[in-house]
Simulated assay, not measured.
Amino acid sequence: MELRELKSFLKIMELESFSRAAKELGYSQSALSVQIHSLENELGVRLFDRLGKQVTLTPPGRQLARRVLPILQEVEELENVMHNRPPAEALRIGMIESLCKAHMPQVMDYVCRNLPQLHITITIDSPSVLLDALNHNKVDLVYVLDKPLYDGKWEKVFQKQENIVFVCSVDSPLAREKDLKLDQVIRQPFFLTEKADNYRLSLDQQLAARQLALNPILEVSDTGFILDMVQRGLGLSFLPQYVVENSPYRDRLQILQVKDFHMHMYRQLFYHKDKWLTQAMKVFLRLALRENPPDKGERTPDFSWNREKDSCTDKGSMI
């Protein structure tokens, strides 16, 4: 079994394509096919199902992937030591826009002070797009707000309930109201996120079930811009409570208590079960767990942080 065959196997798994993997690795497609055929003959199993242009792992292929990832990680670390090269430290995170604005500043404060060699790439998109990217190894971690999500391929680090709230300026007459009702609130001008955003979509669905609707003044994905408009007294919005509480305008904003309407979703952090947990991933998971202790009974990696060595070990605990 050759390392180049194993690396080729993982690249095909990542890209789900022999032709794209061959191009990225610098092989001809026939040469790559020979490598995989040789590996399959040696192991006595079929590693990929090939249905037209679609390439998927077989059960033995998934088992091999789980075992190969840590082996190749060790090989890479050994090569770095032998060649006296610093290990590559990179982290790819998929997030929704509101979580990025609310939580990444604290993470970056720690990283810049303690791990300046770490390079972080953040992809902002919808939960469905980000989780598809996780399945195809295009991101290492996914941090989203949605209904509870589950897939056997993912490890969920934590799940925390978040209120989605109506918000106005402190100068709005509604800010002093104690017994607000939904139909009274939605008569106001609104600045909302785009219809594709999951909490906006859920709002529209719940309003439609009551034969109500909202026609906002403006729809935009930038929650910071929305709250700027709200604090100026130009209208209301409907956003996750953590967005309001982390806004620089929070002293100018008022969360409304609407007695006949309540909605919540869940912040969730995932990585792929077949993904080797890199040092950079462990750092981010540890920082996230400090801020988001798991619910009682929720299984999550328990990372023991060593500040002197900038290292982290996974104890695998039940909290």
Results as ranks from 00 to 15, higher is better:
I226F: 01
I226M: 13
I226Q: 02
D228L: 08
D228A: 09
D228K: 15
M229T: 08
V230K: 09
R232F: 09
G233C: 10
L234T: 05
G235E: 08
F238N: 08
F238R: 07
L239C: 04
L239A: 00
L239Q: 11
L239N: 04
P240E: 03
Q241L: 06
Y242C: 08
Y242V: 12
V243D: 06
V243P: 10
V243L: 05
V244M: 01
V244D: 00
V244A: 00
E245K: 11
N246L: 03
N246Y: 01
S247Q: 05
S247C: 07
P248D: 09
Y249P: 08
R250H: 04
D251Q: 14
R252I: 01
R252F: 12
R252D: 09
L253Q: 06
Q254R: 15
Q254F: 01
L256T: 06
Q257C: 09
Q257A: 11
Q257G: 05
V258Q: 05
V258M: 05
V258K: 03
K259A: 07
K259P: 08
F261S: 02
H262L: 07
M263Q: 15
M263W: 04
H264M: 05
H264G: 06
Y266L: 02
R267A: 05
Q268W: 02
Q268M: 08
L269F: 11
F270I: 07
Y271G: 04
Y271Q: 01
H272S: 12
K273S: 15
K275N: 13
K275T: 14
W276A: 11
W276F: 15
W276K: 10
T278E: 14
T278D: 11
A280K: 09
A280Q: 14
M281W: 04
M281Q: 13
